[in-house]
Design a protein around this nucleic acid. Structure first.
Lengths: 334, 334
DNA sequence: CTGTTAGCGCTTTCAT
DNA sequence: ATGAAAGCGCTAACAG
C-alpha cells in the first residue's frame, strides 16, 4: 500500500497525495477529500522509513537507561513516552544494565536508527565515552538524573536534598546516621547523594558512616551486619528507594521496629513507596516530569534547529515525603 | 556520512562497501579491511531507514502495553528488550493507559513504522479492533498475558493458578475469602482470575465474595469498608500485586495484622514483593520470560517467513511464592 | 571478486 | 492547484 497506489486510484499524482496529507491547504478541498477517502478505503499508511530517508527526520527519540527493573526509570520512561506521544514522537529505549560498554552500543545503535534526539541516563557524564561520541555526532541529547556542567541535564539537586534530610534527621534527635549506598563509583547520582550526606553530617557535627553495597543481592546480609554492629545506627539513610525497602526488611528481620527502633529513609519517590506500611519516608523526585522535561527540551531544540547546550540544564525541585518509616530517634526527647 | 563517501574514500564501489559489511566473505580480505578502516575513520554508520526501505525489514519490534507504571509490564518489557537486543532487534514501545482507542492508534503507528512484528498486551483479545486490523495487515504478532483461542498468546494459566490458590487457602482454614479485583470488564486477565476464584470456591464449598475496585485510587477506601464489614474476610485474594500491597496497607490501617488477622495474597510476582515485610505471598508469573518467549516466537516466524498462529501459543508455568502475607486462618486449628 | 544500476516510498523543488 | 522528476542511502540482481 504505497502512495503510488493511492495516487493511481484517486486519479492524481503522488505529489498531490503527499500534499493532501502534509500540506492540506495547498490542495483543493475536493481533491483532498477524494484522496482521503481513497486512502481510507485502501488502508493506506505512510511509510515512516521512506519519509525519514527523504526528510532526514525520523520523529523518533532514543532513550538510553540502566534498567526498567527499577521503578524510578520505568516512571521516567513513562513520562517520556507520554510527552513524546503528545508531541508526535515515538520512542526507542535501550537498556544498559549499568554496563559502560552498553552505553556506547546503545548510542551507536540509536544513531544508526536516525533518532532525532536522545535522552540518556548514563553512569557518569564526566567519563562517558558514549557521550563524547554522541556530541561529536551532533544529535541533540539531554541527560536525565545525571548532572554535569558540560552537558544539558534534567535533574534534582541531590546534594541539597540529602543535606536537608540530614538536618531533618538531626532535628529528630538522630546522631547515629549511616548512609547505605550502592557502589559509589557506579553512578554520579550516588556520589552526589553521598556528598550531600557528608556535608550535612558535618554541618550537624555528626560523624558519618557509610555502608557501600556493591552488589544489590548482598544488601540483606550487609545490612544485617550493620544493624547488629556495636553502635547500631538510629537511621539508615538509603541512597535509593529500592535499597530503603530492603533496609526496612533487614531491620525487621533483626527483630527491630521501623521507625521506633531504627528509622529508614529513601531517595527517588517511587509510587510504590506510598502504599507500603510503613509508608516510605523519602526524597521525592518528579520522575515523570524529569522525563517530560527532557522530551520538551529535545523537541524545542528540534524546532529551533539548535542543539541543547549545558545552559539548557534544568534543576527540578524535589520534595520530602514524610511517610512513616522515619521518626524521632529512639530515646530522644525531641 | 553515507556509504557513498566510504566507497569513494576506499576507492571501491558502494556495492563493495555494502558487501564488506553484510556479506564479508564475498569480498577479498584486503578490500574488506580497507573498507572497514575507512569506515571507522569516518565514523560511518549504516542508515537504518535506507536499509529498511530497501529490504522491507526494519529489525524493530513494536510493543503495545497498558503502562510502565505497573512493574509487571516493566519487567516484561525488560525481558523483551533483552531478548530483542540479543537477536539484533530494537524495540518501540507504546503505552495505552488501558484505553481501547489507544490500542488502535498504537497499532497504526507501529505499522507505519514498519515494525517487523508486534508484541501486545491488550485489554480483551476477543473484542479488540486493533487486533483485527493488525491481523489484516499481516504483520506477525503475539499477545502477552492475554489468552484467546484465535490468537498466538504467551501467558500462564491464571484460572488454574487461582483455583490452586483457593485450595491452598481452604487447607489453611480460610472460609471467608474475598476476591479483590480491578474492573473486571477492563481485562481478560482479571476475568480469568475471577473465574478461577469462582471455581475454586465452589470446589471448596465456600461462598465467594467479590470487591471490584473500578478506580485504583479508590482502593484504600473500598478495602477499608470490606475489612470493617459484618463478616470480615480472613483472606483478601487480590487480583494483582499492586492491589495486594494496597490491601496490606488497608488491613494494617484498620489496626489488624497481616497475616495473623487477615491474610493477603497477590498475583503477578513482581520482584519488589520479595523485599516487602511481610514478603508478599503471590502467584508468580515469569514476567521476563513471557517477554522473551514472545520475542522468540516473533523472530522465529520472521525467519520462517510465517505468521504465528493461535497454535503457537505457549502457556508458561506459574509458581506459588509462599511469602509471609498469607497464613493460617485466625482461629483455625490447621 | 567487483562494478553498474534499479528502485524501495516519500517529499520537494521547479514547472505549468 | 497540480504534475514531473530528482534523490534521500541502501541492497540485490545482473554483468563482467
Amino acid at each position: 500500500m504505497s502512495i503510488q497506489e493511492v495516487a493511481r486510484q484517486a486519479g492524481v499524482s503522488v505529489a498531490t497525495v503527499s500534499r493532501a496529507f502534509n500540506l492540506p491547504d495547498k490542495v483543493s478541498a475536493e481533491t483532498r477529500e477524494r484522496v482521503a477517502s481513497v486512502a481510507r478505503e485502501l488502508g493506506y499508511r505512510p511509510n515512516a522509513s521512506a519519509r525519514t530517508l527523504r526528510t532526514q527526520r525520523s520523529r523518533v527519540l532514543g532513550v538510553v537507561l540502566p534498567t526498567l527493573l527499577n521503578p524510578v526509570f520505568a516512571e521516567c520512561l513513562d513520562g517520556i513516552a507520554h510527552a513524546a506521544a503528545e508531541l508526535g514522537y515515538s520512542i526507542m529505549p535501550v537498556t544498559t544494565d549499568y554496563q559502560l560498554g552498553q552505553e556506547e552500543r546503545a548510542v551507536d545503535l540509536l544513531l544508526s536508527e536516525s533518532v532525532d534526539g536522545m535522552i540518556l541516563v548514563v553512569s557518569n557524564p564526566a567519563t562517558s565515552i558514549a557521550l563524547q561520541r554522541l556530541r561529536k555526532a551532533g544529535t541533540p541529547y539531554v541527560l536525565a538524573y545525571n548532572r554535569h556542567a558540560d552537558h544539558p541535564c534534567v535533574s534534582v539537586d541531590s546534594e541539597l536534598a540529602v543535606m536537608q534530610l540530614v538536618t531533618r534527621l538531626a532535628a529528630l534527635g538522630h546522631r547515629e546516621i549511616a548512609m547505605v549506598s550502592g557502589q559509589l563509583s557506579a553512578s554520579d547520582r550516588a556520589q552526589q547523594r553521598y556528598r550531600g550526606f557528608l556535608q550535612g553530617m558535618q554541618s550537624a557535627g555528626l560523624s558519618p558512616r557509610l555502608l557501600e553495597v556493591p552488589f544489590i543481592d548482598d544488601a540483606a546480609a550487609a545490612l544485617a551486619d550493620l544493624i547488629h554492629s556495636a553502635r547500631r545506627p538510629t537511621t539508615l539513610l538509603c541512597s535509593n528507594d529500592l535499597l530503603a525497602i530492603r533496609a526496612i526488611r533487614a531491620v525487621r528481620q533483626a527483630g527491630l521496629r521501623v521507625p521506633e527502633d531504627v528509622s529508614v529513609t529513601g531517595f527517588d519517590g517511587i509510587a510504590l513507596g506510598l502504599d507500603l506500611t510503613p509508608m516510605l519516608s523519602t526524597v521525592v523526585q518528579p520522575n515523570a516530569r524529569i522525563g517530560e522535561t527532557a522530551v520538551a527540551l529535545i523537541v524545542q531544540s528540534l524546532i529551533d534547529g539548535s542543539v541543547p547546550g549545558a545552559d539548557a540544564s534544568q534543576m527540578l525541585s524535589h520534595s520530602w515525603r514524610a511517610g512513616e518509616s522515619c521518626g524521632a530517634a529512639a530515646g530522644s526527647t525531641s
